[in-house]
Every structure is written in structure tokens, then in C-alpha cells.
């Protein structure tokens, strides 16, 4: 495959980008993902998982079975925040670092 060929279209990551991550020591899809952002875009690796795993395997002279599957996370489809919020108790999660901060009361300096 040509070095400039795009392999992750969401984030426009090329074969060369993958090679550079692998040359730094990355061995799994997740390692390469953290360095390059491949698979982190809108499709969440649904399109590029296979080809990138195969490329890593080829570059590392391993078999495809040795390249573990990246962590695939919910939500499985992009969902608007308003939809996600619609059915949960409101405010059940509002906490703040401000509320938790404990200003000195003069005892410690």
C-alpha cells in the first residue's frame, strides 16, 4: 500500500502515520490509536479496524490473530446528549471541584 494512502478516513490517518506509531513501539490497535487518533472519529473504528490491525500485523511480522481488538465503547451509535439525558434522574451527578475544595481555616500554612 502506498505510504500516503488514507486508512482511517474519519481522522485522515495514513499508512505512514501508522508506521510512525509502530516505529515508536506501539504494538496494538489501541496503542496506535492513542498516538495517531485512528479509529477515534465518528465511526469509532467500524471502518478501519480491520485494515489497521492487518497493517500493524504486517509491520510487526505477526499474524492478525496476535493483534488484539481495540476497546469498543458505548454508546454504539452517536446519540445526542438530550436523548441520553431524557430518561435519567436530573442532577444525580452534579458535583464540582469548587464544592469539594476546602479552603484553609488558618490552622495550616
Amino acid at each position: 500500500m502506498d505510504k500516503s494512502t488514507i486508512v482511517c478516513r474519519c481522522e485522515e490517518i495514513t499508512v505512514e502515520d501508522i508506521a510512525s506509531a509502530v516505529s515508536q513501539g506501539a504494538e496494538t490497535f489501541d496503542d496506535v490509536k492513542r498516538l495517531t487518533r485512528c479509529g477515534m472519529g465518528l465511526c469509532q473504528a467500524k471502518t478501519c479496524r480491520i485494515v489497521i490491525s492487518e497493517l500493524i500485523a504486517e509491520m510487526k511480522a505477526k499474524s492478525a490473530a496476535d493483534i488484539s481488538v481495540p476497546r469498543l465503547r458505548m454508546p454504539l451509535r452517536p446519540v445526542p446528549i438530550g436523548v441520553l439525558a431524557a430518561n435519567t434522574a436530573s442532577g444525580s451527578f452534579v458535583r464540582s471541584t469548587l464544592a469539594e475544595a476546602e479552603p484553609d481555616e488558618g490552622q495550616e500554612k
Binding site: 500500500m1 502506498d2 500516503s4 494512502t5 488514507i6 478516513r9 467500524k46 485494515v51
Partner: peptide
Amino acid sequence: AESARHFPGWT
């Protein structure tokens, strides 16, 4: 799902 093939211009 269907797997893609990659070459310059596939996007």
C-alpha cells in the same frame, strides 16, 4: 459488516 480495501483515492 463489509470490509474495505485501500488504495489511493478510495475515499
